[in-house]
Amino acid sequence: MKNVDVDLNLLVALDVLLVEGSVTAAAQRLGLSISAMSRTLARLRAATGDPLLVRAGRGMVPTPRAEELRDHVHNLARDVQAVLQPQPKTLDVGALERTFTIRVSEAFMACLAGPVVAAVSTAAPGICLRFAPKPDKNAGPLRDGMIDLEIGVIGTTAPEIRTRLLFCDHLIGIARAKHPLLSGDTPVSPDTFAACHHIAVSKDGNVAQPVDAVLNGLGLARNIRVIVPGFPDAIRIARHSELVALVPHSCLGSLLQADDREISGLMMFDVPVLLPEIRISAMWHPRQEADPAHKWLRDTVIGVCRAAYPPRQP
Rank of each mutant, 00 (worst) to 15 (best):
residue 131 F to V: 06
residue 36 A to D: 09
residue 90 T to L: 13
residue 297 L to F: 02
residue 83 V to K: 15
residue 9 N to M: 12
residue 209 Q to L: 11
residue 141 P to C: 05
residue 4 V to H: 15
residue 8 L to C: 02
residue 96 L to E: 02
residue 204 D to F: 06
residue 24 T to V: 14
residue 246 L to K: 02
residue 277 E to A: 10
residue 70 R to A: 08
residue 207 V to F: 07
residue 117 V to C: 08
residue 137 K to H: 15
residue 261 R to F: 02
residue 193 F to Q: 03
residue 33 S to Q: 10
residue 169 D to V: 07
residue 185 D to N: 14
residue 19 V to C: 09
residue 261 R to Y: 07
residue 118 A to F: 09
residue 290 A to F: 11
residue 224 I to D: 02
residue 85 Q to A: 13
residue 34 I to N: 15
residue 73 V to D: 07
residue 251 C to S: 14
residue 236 R to L: 10
residue 94 G to N: 09
residue 19 V to L: 12
residue 243 L to P: 00
residue 18 L to C: 04
residue 109 M to V: 12
residue 117 V to A: 07
residue 234 A to S: 06
residue 250 S to M: 12
residue 283 M to T: 01
residue 167 F to D: 01
residue 123 A to F: 03
residue 59 G to M: 09
residue 280 I to V: 12
residue 240 H to N: 14
residue 197 H to Y: 06
residue 85 Q to C: 11
residue 196 C to G: 01
residue 276 P to C: 01
residue 16 V to E: 10
residue 229 P to H: 03
residue 105 S to L: 10
residue 144 D to T: 13
residue 74 H to Q: 13
residue 123 A to K: 08
residue 266 L to G: 00
residue 44 L to R: 04
residue 116 V to C: 00
residue 147 I to K: 04
residue 279 R to M: 07
residue 250 S to Y: 02
residue 119 A to K: 10
residue 289 E to C: 06
residue 32 L to W: 10
residue 175 A to E: 04
residue 64 P to D: 09
residue 211 V to E: 06
residue 41 L to W: 00
residue 278 I to Q: 11
residue 275 L to I: 05
residue 109 M to D: 07
residue 55 R to L: 10
residue 244 V to N: 00
residue 166 L to I: 06
residue 125 P to H: 09
residue 2 K to R: 15
residue 16 V to H: 02
residue 74 H to L: 06
residue 39 R to Q: 13
residue 280 I to L: 12
residue 2 K to L: 14
residue 278 I to M: 11
residue 35 S to M: 11
residue 289 E to F: 04
residue 57 G to L: 10
residue 5 D to K: 14
residue 311 P to F: 08
residue 246 L to T: 05
residue 23 V to Y: 05
residue 104 V to H: 00
residue 133 P to D: 07
residue 106 E to N: 09
residue 273 V to Y: 02
residue 222 R to A: 01
residue 42 A to I: 07
residue 100 F to W: 07
residue 257 Q to A: 13
residue 19 V to Y: 07
residue 231 F to T: 09
residue 128 C to F: 11
residue 257 Q to S: 12
residue 257 Q to H: 13
residue 117 V to W: 03
residue 62 P to G: 00
residue 122 T to K: 13
residue 213 A to F: 09
residue 30 L to R: 11
residue 124 A to L: 03
residue 232 P to H: 08
residue 181 L to T: 00
residue 273 V to Q: 03
residue 59 G to T: 09
residue 92 D to P: 03
residue 32 L to P: 01
residue 114 G to W: 12
residue 113 A to E: 08
residue 233 D to E: 14
residue 75 N to R: 15
residue 103 R to S: 12
residue 264 S to W: 10
residue 39 R to L: 11
residue 296 W to C: 06
residue 187 P to H: 03
residue 271 V to K: 01
residue 22 S to L: 04
residue 63 T to F: 01
residue 38 S to C: 04
residue 61 V to M: 10
residue 279 R to W: 07
residue 304 V to C: 02
